[in-house]
Design a protein around this nucleic acid. Sequence first.
DNA 1: CCTTGACCTTCCTATCGTTGGAAACTTTAG
DNA 2: CTAAAGTTTCCAACGATAGGAAGGTCAAGG
Lengths: 167, 167
Amino acid sequence: MNIGQAARASGVSAKMIRYYEKIGLIPNATRSGAGYRTYNSSDVHSLYFIRSARDLGFSVEKIMKLLALWRDRDRASADVKDMALAHAAGLKAKIAELQAMVQTLEYLANHCHGNDRPDCPIIENLAERTAAVATERRAGVQSKAPLFGTDTPASSRDRASTGTRKA
Amino acid sequence: MNIGQAARASGVSAKMIRYYEKIGLIPNATRSGAGYRTYNSSDVHSLYFIRSARDLGFSVEKIMKLLALWRDRDRASADVKDMALAHAAGLKAKIAELQAMVQTLEYLANHCHGNDRPDCPIIENLAERTAAVATERRAGVQSKAPLFGTDTPASSRDRASTGTRKA
DNA sequence: CCTTGACCTTCCTATCGTTGGAAACTTTAG
DNA sequence: CTAAAGTTTCCAACGATAGGAAGGTCAAGG
């Protein structure tokens, strides 16, 4: 079985199969005389496993651990369960973040006339102080740089400590 | 105001300010005699706008449009509202996707004993056919290569699905 | 004046997962 | 034999961000 067949059978593109091999997620494939990679059904099975895990949002790094557990016939199911639940928790956090964004956007849209006049609270909020919901969501948020018409070049207090605030 | 002050005042890192300038999201900054970029409060205001939009999950590309609308005093508020709602809809789709993942993971975890024995339906499902929820979520999924313990290198129906489906 | 340290400059690299292309080779079908 | 399809490797790009190296600049203090 060449890489194309393996790709179609597993749902992982040939490009990605080579990539997974290069980064060590899967072992080096055996080669035919002409240098073609050859795969058997067990390899396809691994690839399908990988694709399923990617569909569930697991990173390649985590998939490495899952694959190790998969191949370990003496694994404890608790290990896998922990990984799955931890991953689910991470996804939930991401969901909450996105929901806060949606809430803010819809709040702003609801306060926008949506006509042909320029008056638009969405723009105004983005420009002036970020909407309330987003502000609340943000963790260590303090005093949002009120400098406006003022042109003071180096105002007395510098917050935001250069970097590493958010993802 | 130098780039460091602008960064602290706007919440956008100096690295990102230079990047935004390079990709044309913001105009080239004026320079001091020594080549330092200088900013005024209006520039900081733009940066703050950008940061707020990024916090709401807007891509840089969309922010370019938002900035154009911001600077266009004759814009129709409907344009901005449409963008905001379209973006919210996109976020909602993403949320639904993540929720499906969580659902699958928790379903699998609930069926896992989580003890020190190797028996683990999470692994089994990843390996064999992907859990029901994920399968339903996936669109045109068919005939999932049932090849299993068999080790036939080129079994009869490995080219069955020769027709480029999926990416 | 000179040093020190904070700041700024450009340029290069990396991340993560994936896709794209180019140039060359092999296999398969006609 | 030829043409098409498949494969190989290598190189680059995406989006947004972070890190670092090597060097120039500024302000304060001796």
